[in-house]
Computed example of a mutant assay.
Amino acid sequence: MAEHQQRPGFMPEKGPSTSQVLAVITLFPVGGILLVLSGLTLAGTLIGLTVATPLFVIFSPVLVPAALVLALAVTGFLTSGAFGITALSSLSWIVNYFRKGHVTEQMEHARRRVQEGAGQLGMKAKEAGHGIQGKAQETTRT
């Protein structure tokens, strides 16, 4: 078996390339520095929390209502904005609907139906009037 052939499942026999070595040499210290900074940040956070906890306990009667008021104010502003955007988009949709002429077709259809309904109502009123007039004439005869 020749030494320069690769066996399946094994790494090639040649070493890493120069760019791979440079990448490891460059990134290893950067990763170490970032890891140290991460540890320092965690330690600073824990120290700050340790110092601030008694202050939170002492001032909690003031801080809790203040946080609640702040949360409600932010919620109110966001809700107001959402309602405003909804209203503007609805008005925009209505204006575009009118501009495209969909309403004129529907208005004509509605007008015809109202006229038909008014005609039918007039006929019924006329029939009712004739019925009342007939009854009135009968009562005057008797």
Rank of each mutant, 00 (worst) to 15 (best):
G39H: 10
T75G: 10
V21Q: 12
T75L: 12
I47G: 00
N96F: 01
T139S: 12
L70Y: 14
V62E: 14
V103H: 02
A125T: 13
H109L: 14
L88H: 10
Q106L: 10
A67K: 08
R99M: 00
S19E: 13
P16N: 09
I25V: 15
A82C: 15
G119L: 11
E3S: 01
S17K: 13
F28A: 08
N96I: 00
S89G: 03
S17I: 01
A52Y: 06
G84V: 07
Q6L: 14
R113P: 00
M1S: 11
Q106D: 06
E138Y: 04
F56A: 13
T140F: 01
L72C: 12
Q5V: 08
G9T: 08
L40F: 15
F28C: 13
F28G: 05
I85M: 05
E3C: 04
F56H: 10
K100C: 01
V24D: 14
E105N: 06
G31K: 08
P65W: 10
I47E: 05
T18E: 08
S19T: 10
M11L: 14
S89Y: 04
Q137K: 14
L63Y: 08
A118W: 02
T41A: 13
G101P: 00
T45Y: 04
F56V: 04
V95A: 07
T139V: 13
A110K: 06
R112A: 15
A43C: 01
P54K: 05
F77N: 02
H102A: 02
V30R: 06
H102N: 14
H4P: 00
F83S: 06
L88Q: 02
T41D: 09
Q115T: 09
Y97T: 02
A87N: 03
G122A: 15
I85Q: 06
V69F: 13
S38A: 10
P8W: 03
L68G: 10
L78W: 04
R113K: 15
V21P: 01
T86Y: 12
F59E: 01
